[in-house]
């Protein structure tokens, strides 16, 4: 079998995260071997001990920046990457660990670790895009593996990824899912949340909990106003906006609007 002389190099990098988004690449059971045929897996510690030197054609970056070392490392990765794609809520919005951004990190260290002086961490968990230029941000906590394949596919074939930025509601309506908020009064983040998960929660009778982060142009205040009228307390509203994408600006601002003063 003849191969093209040079396969594009794929690297997968990890920062503070749960590994779930990288796992989504290994979870592409039907496509994994085809991906491995299409690219040279140049750096992917979760899957291989082999490494190839940069520069890398595509770097997938998982996780958020939480340590001084990581804040340096991301720059070196950017320098060696032709295209840098962030995968998941941590890399794109700071992740669940960005809840620290609303507290004092010293208190957190003291509460978990007996010897706080051993711990080197930043006071805020920040997305990759706060540090370096990002070519494409793939949303989700975790990302949807079909969307990941679509992004790789698009990059490898030189086309734009079909990743829409509209609301989760669009997915519900296409699927014919009954609106849980209108028909059952269940608080739902769908109207302000980025589509892409594949319409998971509402069909289960559960309100969207915003794991894909803010959609394009979200009217978070409009949604919070409605939910408030439906009986959600400020504390509940703050909690809803302060989860896996807590540091994404629209969600952060909305949660801060419901701080108890």
């Amino acid at each position: 079998m003849t191969r093209p002389p040079k396969k594009p190099k794929l690297a997968v990098w990890k920062f503070a995260s749960c590994d779930g988004c990288q796992l989504s690449l290994l979870d592409c059971e039907d496509e994994l071997l085809a991906i491995a045929d299409g690219v040279a897996i140049a750096y992917f510690p979760e899957a291989t001990r082999a490494t190839l030197p940069g520069p890398y054609d595509i770097s997938l970056v998982e996780g958020s920046i939480t340590t001084p070392d990581d804040a340096e490392r991301i720059h070196s990765i950017r320098r060696r990457s032709k295209r840098l794609v962030t995968i998941g809520a941590c890399a794109t919005a700071g992740g669940i660990q960005a809840l620290r951004n609303f507290t004092r990190v010293e208190d957190l260290i003291r509460s978990v670790y007996a010897r706080p002086e051993y711990i080197d961490t930043l006071s805020k968990s920040t997305p990759i895009g706060d540090h370096v230029f990002v070519d494409f941000e793939l949303r989700g906590c975790p990302i949807d593996r079909f969307q990941l394949v679509e992004v790789l596919n698009a990059l490898l074939n030189g086309r734009r990824p079909n990743i829409p930025h509209y609301s989760q509601c669009v997915e519900c309506k296409r699927a014919g899912t009954v609106c849980v908020m209108v028909s059952r009064g269940i608080p739902c983040m769908g109207p302000v949340t980025h589509a892409g998960c594949g319409n998971l929660c509402p069909p289960l009778g559960r309100g969207c909990y915003g794991c894909f982060g803010p959609m394009e142009l979200p009217n978070t205040a409009g949604l919070a106003g409605w939910l408030g009228k439906e009986g959600c307390s400020s504390e509940q509203l703050r909690g809803m906006f302060r989860t896996y994408n807590a540091a994404a600006a629209p969600f952060r601002r909305e949660s801060e609007a419901h701080e108890q003063r």
Partner: peptide
């Protein structure tokens, strides 16, 4: 103000 832009 009320429009969520959700496209519903």
């Amino acid at each position: 103000e009320r429009c969520l832009g959700c496209a519903n």
